[in-house]
Structure formats: C-alpha cells, structure tokens
Design a protein around this nucleic acid. Sequence first.
DNA 1: TGTACATCAGTGAACGCGCGTTCACTGATGTAC
DNA 2: TGTACATCAGTGAACGCGCGTTCACTGATGTAC
Lengths: 206, 206
Amino acid sequence: VFNNRVKALKKALKKQDLRGRVVAAARAEIAEKGLAVIKARDVADRAKSALGGIYTVFADLDAIVLAVNQDSLDALDQIMTEAVAGVDDPAQKLAKLIEAYLSFARAEPFLWRAMFEHRLPEGVAYPVSHYEALARLMAHIAEPLRDLRLGESEAQRFTRARTLFSAFHGIIWMSLDDRFTGLSSEELESELQMMLEQLLRGARTA
Amino acid sequence: VFNNRVKALKKALKKQDLRGRVVAAARAEIAEKGLAVIKARDVADRAKSALGGIYTVFADLDAIVLAVNQDSLDALDQIMTEAVAGVDDPAQKLAKLIEAYLSFARAEPFLWRAMFEHRLPEGVAYPVSHYEALARLMAHIAEPLRDLRLGESEAQRFTRARTLFSAFHGIIWMSLDDRFTGLSSEELESELQMMLEQLLRGARTA
DNA sequence: TGTACATCAGTGAACGCGCGTTCACTGATGTAC
DNA sequence: TGTACATCAGTGAACGCGCGTTCACTGATGTAC
C-alpha cells in the first residue's frame, strides 16, 4: 500500500512545523531584544519546544539566525520590489528604494541590524542563498542606474549600486548609534534626500 | 619633610606605568585579533601583570576597551589634522580627509572596527571625552564645508559633516565585509573619489 | 646604617554564572499479526 | 478491532567550558626608632 507515503509525509510536515515555529520564535526574540542577547533557551521556550528539540531541526544556533536573516533579506526584496512598482522615472525609483529601506530599518530595527551584525565563526562560509539574496537587493538599485546611464557595463553598475547602497546604509546606520545622537527623524530624511539629489545632479552634469 | 611627596609621586608613577602597559596590551590584542575575542587574561599576560592586577587600574574590561578606543579617536584626529595641513582648496581637503580615513582603516582594521563595534551594557553612557573626540573628527569635515558654502549655520554644517562621514564610512565598512566581496583596492578608491566628485558637483550647481 | 613593624599594590587560585550542546531516556506513533 | 512490540522525534537534566571578576594572601616598599 501507499500508506507508507502518507506516514512519511505526515512526519515531514510535523518536522516542518517545528522548524517553522523555531524560526518564528527566533525572529520574535531578535526583533524584541536584538541579536546580541539571543539564547537557545529563549528560542526553544517561545517555540514551545524542549531545548534539545531545536537541535533536531537545526545544526546550531547560528543556523537559526541565518534562517531569520535570510527571511529578512527576502522581506526586504519584497518591500523594494513593491516600492518601485508603477514608478517610471529612474531617479524617482532610487528615492523610493531608499525610502523603502529606511522604512524597513525603522519598522524592524533589530531584525535589520541583525543582518549586518551577525558573524559566522572564523572560516565558516555563508550559504550561497545569502549571497544571492544580497545580489537581488543590489539589482534593484542597479536597474535605475542603467536608465540613468550611470555605469557602462553591468558589472560597473553593480559596483556603483553597492557603493550607493553602502553610503545610504551608512547614513541610516549611524543615525541610530547612541554616540551620534541629535539627528531627528525629519533631518535624517532630508539628509538622505539631499544626498541623492546632489549625487544625481553631479552625475548628470559630469 | 617633603619626602612623603616623593614617595607618593613614585607610587603614582608606578600605577601609571601599569595602566599604560594594560592599555598598550589591550590595543595590541585588539589590533591583532579583533575586539570580539579580547580576553582579560590575554591582556593581563601581555601587560606582564597578574589577572587581578588589571582591576587595580581599571574598573572592568569595558573601561580598558574604552581607553583603547579613545586613543584610536585621538590618533584619527591627528592623522586628519596632518592630512589637511597646507591644503587650501576645500574640495581637496575633503578628498584628503577621506584618504586619511581610509588609510587608518587599512593600517589598523581591527582598531578601526573596534571603535564602532564596541557597545557598553544597556543603560551605561559613554564618557564625555568620547563625544568630544567624535565632535573633533566631525569638525575636520565641517570646516571645508564652510568654505564651500554648504550649509548656512554651524549646526547645519555639522549635520552635513556627519552625513558625509557616515556615507563614506559606510562605503569603506562594507568593502571589507566578507558578504560583499569583489571590490578591489583600486575600485574602492575610485568609487570614493567619484562619490565625492559627484556630490561636490551636485552641490555646486544646486 | 640596622632592625622590627606596617602598609598595600599586585598576585593568582577560586568563584560563579551563563549558555550552547549533548545524550540517555520516554511516550506517542506506527507496524505486525 | 485488539494486543504486543518497534521506532524515533522530542525531552530536559546534565555536561563542559569559557571567562569576567573577586578576595585572601604576600612580598616589596616604606616608616619608626
């Protein structure tokens, strides 16, 4: 009989369920308290699993964090895709992308920071999917650059996209560092906007 | 007799000596291995002090790291001061400042990163001297902005200086992240240069 | 200069705790007849 | 449908280690006479 199939499937589903609960729990923990204080016990409790249970679906805590960050990257991809939907002007697209990025950083500051703060132990490489997700984000930025004729080759535009991303990311990142206090929400937005305008104007008149 | 004075001084000098050795040891440890793996035992060993000895000159490990970072900020101030010495053109000054910053980041990547990676425990504030050192760095950038007539008030120029700093810092920071590989040394420099040129051109034609 | 005593900077073994990971067990689920 | 046995996902107590910090002690330095 194919009853075996049904059984195996049921088992796999249960495993998937636990896995999903663990990732969701880890995400909630990070979102509330930050990556720095994430604990295996807190994740297990929140997932309504025994401590050992999480090790039946993930190799270690790093793998769980990686899954959370992968989800964040995917969410960011989605948000950026939606941000430029229906927008034609490439300069406007860039503005929308920055706005979308900022809104994500603000809505989920801990999840956002976790993507950049997390480090794998020395010598351990990130999974390919991680790099792919990052490349997808860069592609969002590279696309309007093509329309603006900034960068001749695909490779050049990717380099430029990364530079732009790093610059705007840096501005937002610093703005929430305690040691650089004093930048209000409106100031930050106007600084980002001014930066983009100047860059585009400078590039156009080159 | 004032023999007491001599004795007290001698004692103070010895204390200063130990303090100096501890900071130097901590700096060497961070410079070699990075902030993430600094250990009280390694610092004590390197300073040729017993483990408990470091606690006679510093309250805790955080205070030691803070002293190292303060030194780094001071070194950066010095480097930036030298970078613009004898330069008149404000645009050129900004280029020199970026160059100087990059050279520090490259010469001492771990010390450089430590300044930004270190976090004090929740609720503990940084010493005033730390903020002052940061303000001094910003002042280096704000000065040429005045000559370029970018920003009307002192406060505006400081905000702009911080934005510029964050942007360039962000580009350099990301360039050494494993997950964003593929940017050669020359590419990084040309990206920084192009960024500055575009910003200045865009600001001028505003 | 020499001796007996006092001080306290510096010592390092021990404390204490946090926390990731393991593993001997168990009870829920499935199988055989 | 019912009973005896097998499997193994999930349990949670225990392991093990790292490491910041403490504190009872000591020997180097200073003081008194």
